[in-house]
Amino acid sequence: MSEHSGEAILSGKGVTKRFGGLVAVNHVDIHLNKHEILGLIGPNGAGKTTLFNMLSGTMPMSEGELRYHGKVIPKPRSNELCKMGIGRTYQICQPFSNLTVLENVMVGAYIRHGKTSEARDAAYQVLKRVGLEQAAHSGGSALTLPQLKRMEVARALATEPDVLLLDEVIAGLNPTEVERIMELIREIRAGGMSIIIIEHVMRAMMNLSDRIVVINQGTKIAEGLPAEIASNPLVIESYLGGGKH
């Protein structure tokens, strides 16, 4: 396997998660290069989100090592990783329902802008960037699904991360919205961020990703360029061969 440790911005080695006797993620090595869009795919229950949770510090690892900019992070915690520059979204959108959309994004912006007026300005800029400024003063719980997904992205962007972990921001959107959010993701990368994205929509993944990692039953079964992955028999068998994509 190719070693990119020199330019990897975020990497996990032997990342493992056990829930009692169940091994949800089993010794997965994964790395994200600078300015790369890395796709993470796999069937339902493969352990993608669990792996994500560990990479973002939301869930402690049972075993394994996380490196950011080459440095080992001994005890990754989500709030500290966020300060370091790793932002994430959630598959199930988790708005702060007691705050407006702008305020939701401000919570993210505060980490770089301590003053309320500055945080508000920064949050508004991010909302503009994701095309949500019209909904800035709506309640966080009054949004449609595509808007919610944009708000999730906006909140993570407001923390001004170097690495962005996107958990299914495309699933559930209609084709026009898919096009728009893919455009947004490309723009974000062009702005200098490195992105790991979990997605079920294969067409979008093949289109968007520079590289793809395939997880099945907690183990990494393949890694490579989208074209390689699409023709990999192991992947086709375990993932695409299941009758649906």
Binding site: R77, S78, N79, C82, Q94, N98, E103, N104
Partner: peptide, 17 residues
């Protein structure tokens, strides 16, 4: 704002630093 974010969703708040 942090207080209210925690009140609504601790995990999401932690992910935002």
């Amino acid at each position: 704002f942090y207080f209210r974010a925690i009140s609504a969703n601790e995990g999401a708040a932690a992910s935002l630093g």
